[in-house]
Amino acid sequence: MKLPVCLLALLGWTGHVLALDQSDQQILCQISSGSYTMVGGIWGELETRLPNPDQTFVHLKINRTANRADLTILGKDQRTVFLALSNGIVTDSTILFKHQVAHPYPDIEMLGTADYVVTRAGNELRIKGAREFPVVCCDIPYYFAHTDVVATEVPAPTIRVSEVEICWSSSSNCTYQVQYRSDLGKDSWTDLGDPIRGNGAVICVTDKIPQDAPQRLYRIILIP
């Protein structure tokens, strides 16, 4: 007769490090090409090729319930914000941003208009648009534009467990059997190896996990 279960554990060995809220989708992309142009000021018109240390990544957050999105262009450290667009309207594969923004020079108190279009195609984002401000002085840039910017999605990190170790405190003169199953509601318990005789010490058994196994449950039973 089999005695009651001594141990029952659920182990999952494949999963994303970042868990997202059900109503939100977050995507991190790395800029691969494009240009950034600034017009006005002492430089006249200055064009910069992307990516550069100030503009390396794009973080896109989509609220699927409200069909709204926020987009942030980040520096190489993934923390420094170069541009932040909010409350974009999501329609199929296109996101439209059009709202007031502050001047990128922090010491200039001026509002302008941001007008951007973001298109999603597979694992790529394509970004174009500009921020435009009133012309108030020949030394102050008034137009800032992104042209033909392409950013490719960065794969989400995953954790892969290839082996599990099951340990328990054994009693002398007791015999144990480790068993496993993949689903409590579908399959049956399967013996993992041969029965093991207890010796009063901690006993450990290892199990190599198949690559396609999403989860596995274990139990240890006493057998006559």
Rank of each mutant, 00 (worst) to 15 (best):
V39M: 01
V39P: 03
V39H: 01
G40D: 09
G40T: 05
G40S: 03
G41T: 15
I42D: 14
W43D: 15
W43N: 11
G44Q: 04
G44S: 00
G44C: 07
E45H: 02
L46A: 07
L46C: 06
L46E: 06
E47C: 06
E47Q: 05
E47I: 04
E47Y: 05
E47S: 02
T48W: 00
T48P: 00
T48V: 02
T48L: 09
R49M: 10
L50V: 01
L50W: 00
P51R: 00
N52W: 02
P53E: 01
D54L: 13
Q55C: 14
T56F: 01
T56M: 03
F57Q: 13
F57A: 11
F57T: 15
F57I: 15
F57N: 15
V58N: 00
H59F: 09
H59G: 06
L60S: 08
L60W: 02
L60A: 06
K61Y: 02
K61F: 10
K61L: 08
I62N: 08
I62K: 11
I62E: 12
N63K: 07
N63W: 07
N63L: 05
N63F: 11
R64E: 15
R64M: 11
R64W: 13
T65E: 15
T65Y: 11
T65A: 14
A66S: 14
A66Y: 03
A66C: 08
A66K: 04
N67S: 07
N67P: 03
N67L: 13
N67G: 00
R68E: 10
R68W: 02
A69I: 03
A69C: 06
D70T: 08
D70R: 00
D70N: 05
L71Y: 08
T72N: 03
I73S: 03
I73M: 06
L74I: 01
L74Y: 02
L74C: 10
L74T: 11
L74Q: 02
L74S: 04
G75V: 14
G75H: 06
G75E: 14
K76P: 01
K76Q: 14
K76W: 08
K76Y: 14
D77T: 00
Q78K: 13
Q78G: 12
Q78D: 09
R79W: 04
T80Y: 03
T80R: 08
F82V: 04
L83H: 00
L83M: 13
L83I: 01
L83V: 06
A84F: 09
L85P: 05
L85G: 13
L85E: 05
N87S: 09
N87P: 06
N87L: 09
N87M: 06
N87G: 12
G88C: 09
I89D: 14
I89A: 15
V90D: 01
T91K: 10
D92M: 05
D92S: 10
D92Y: 03
S93H: 14
S93G: 15
S93I: 09
S93D: 15
S93T: 14
S93R: 12
T94C: 12
T94F: 09
T94N: 12
T94Q: 13
T94M: 13
T94P: 00
T94W: 08
T94E: 15
I95V: 09
I95H: 08
I95W: 08
L96A: 11
L96R: 11
F97A: 09
F97Y: 13
K98P: 01
K98E: 07
K98L: 05
K98C: 10
